[in-house]
């Protein structure tokens, strides 16, 4: 067994904007370890604390209690730049940057590795080109980023994270806005990177298919953490998502398929269900 890359011990995080202490916690007593080179999917209903957990893992928020170790070192003690060399984050897309070219956005990933007087070398440029190629944007390097579609933009940010050369990649809903083809392309790409990937995913089937491990959160607590086979149990999912479902195994390929069947219950509100 290799040493854990992340060790989370009794982590609690209050909502950053709430003033009263002891109110509802965004994350409550999270204890787990993440091993190198795993693809971990964080799943759970809206408001379960998926994004908050990512923000803890990249050092954006400090936990209110508990500790978090990155490669055995306390994460809070590392400088932002040192952290950025190890952890890259791809946030949910908000708006496109005005006036920047794709190449320039991807090249931002060089930032944590550069001192103020260092220029951009030919090698750096090659790296940027390669990253754009990997996400399928090689031909758009000279286009302005605000002309890209949502899916292209998502891939552009992944390219930036690749240029960042971190061993850990945190992604918040990387498949949002993507066509089916690109959903699979992006996840396959991530899978093949040989990096520790931690991503929030809405789509349980994509999660089941591409993640080594799944972390099921509900109301800031860990409900289950393990292989897809351990986590995706119909009874548990029904409890957490409030909808009855069946989990079938794709015998031909070996991955699980979750199908929610609202008709089986009196629940009215649907959760995104696979088509």
């Amino acid at each position: 067994m290799t040493a854990a890359i992340y060790t989370l011990d009794q982590l609690c995080l209050a909502y950053p904007n709430s003033r009263s202490t002891g109110s509802v916690l965004a994350l409550d007593q999270i204890t787990l370890t993440i091993s190198p080179d795993e693809v971990v999917g964080i799943i759970g209903p809206n408001g379960a604390g998926k994004s908050s957990l990512l923000q803890l893992l990249n050092g954006r928020y400090a936990p209110n209690s508990g500790r978090i170790l990155l490669s055995g070192q306390p994460l809070q003690q590392q400088s932002a730049q040192a952290l950025a060399r190890q952890v890259a984050t791809v946030a949910q897309i908000s708006s496109a940057p005005q006036g920047l070219f794709c190449e320039q956005v991807a090249a931002m990933g060089l930032l944590p590795h550069k001192r103020w007087y260092e220029g951009t070398s030919a090698q750096d440029k090659q790296q940027v080109r390669l990253a754009l190629q990997q996400v399928g944007l090689a031909d758009k390097a000279q286009l302005r980023a605000d002309t890209l579609s949502g899916g292209e933009l998502q891939r552009l940010y992944i390219a930036r994270a690749l240029v960042q050369q971190a061993t850990i990649l945190l992604l918040d809903e990387p498949t949002n806005h993507l066509d089916v083809k690109y959903q699979h392309q992006v996840l396959q790409l991530l899978q093949g990177l040989n990096k520790t990937i931690i991503c929030c995913l809405h789509d349980l089937n994509l999660a089941a298919r591409y993640c080594h491990k799944l972390l099921l959160l509900e109301n800031g607590r860990v409900r289950a953490y393990g292989t897809p086979h351990d986590v995706l149990r119909p009874a548990l999912l029904q409890q957490v998502f409030g909808l009855p479902c069946v989990v079938s195994s794709q015998a031909d390929y070996g991955w699980l398929q979750v199908t929610f069947i609202p008709e089986l219950a009196h629940a009215k509100v649907g959760v995104p269900s696979p088509c």
Binding site: R60, S79, Q104
Partner: peptide, 23 residues
């Protein structure tokens, strides 16, 4: 000019700049 990369990173969003290690 010395913080040119940091300035460019800020063009996207604060969160994005922070994830690149910009204080």
């Amino acid at each position: 000019l010395a913080v040119r990369r940091q300035l460019d990173a800020l063009l996207l969003s604060d969160d994005s700049a922070r994830s690149l290690g910009v204080n």
